[in-house]
Amino acid sequence: MRTEVAKDSYGASVIELARRGAPVRYAGDFLVAVDHDRPTGYYETDRDGLRWREAAPFNTVQFDVAVADANDGRFVPGLTVALRAEKNGRTLAAGECLFRWHPRLHRYAVDLRLLPGRYDVTVHIGTPVFQREDHAAGRRYSDPVVLRFPNFEVCRIGAV
Rank of each mutant, 00 (worst) to 15 (best):
R2N: 13
A6Q: 08
A6T: 12
K7D: 15
D8A: 11
D8G: 05
S9W: 15
S9L: 12
Y10L: 03
G11W: 02
S13M: 12
V14F: 03
G21T: 01
G21E: 10
R25N: 08
R25C: 03
R25I: 06
Y26D: 08
A27K: 01
G28D: 02
G28K: 03
G28M: 07
D29C: 05
F30P: 05
F30Y: 14
V32F: 02
V34C: 05
D35F: 06
D37Y: 12
G41D: 01
Y42M: 01
Y43F: 02
E44P: 00
E44C: 00
E44H: 01
T45F: 00
D48S: 13
D48E: 11
G49H: 00
L50F: 00
R51E: 00
E54I: 00
N59W: 10
F63I: 10
A70C: 03
N71G: 14
N71R: 13
N71L: 15
D72H: 14
R74K: 14
G78L: 01
T80D: 14
A82N: 12
L83T: 06
L83G: 08
L83Y: 09
G89A: 11
G89D: 04
A93H: 04
A93W: 01
A94N: 07
A94V: 07
E96D: 14
L98N: 05
L98Q: 08
F99M: 05
P103I: 06
H106S: 12
R107S: 11
A109L: 03
V110I: 08
D111T: 07
L114W: 07
L114Y: 10
G117D: 07
R118D: 11
R118G: 09
Y119A: 09
T122H: 07
T122N: 06
F130D: 10
F130Y: 13
F130L: 06
Q131G: 09
R132K: 14
R132F: 05
A136H: 15
R140E: 05
Y141R: 03
Y141K: 08
P144T: 08
R148D: 06
F149S: 04
N151P: 02
R156G: 11
V160L: 14
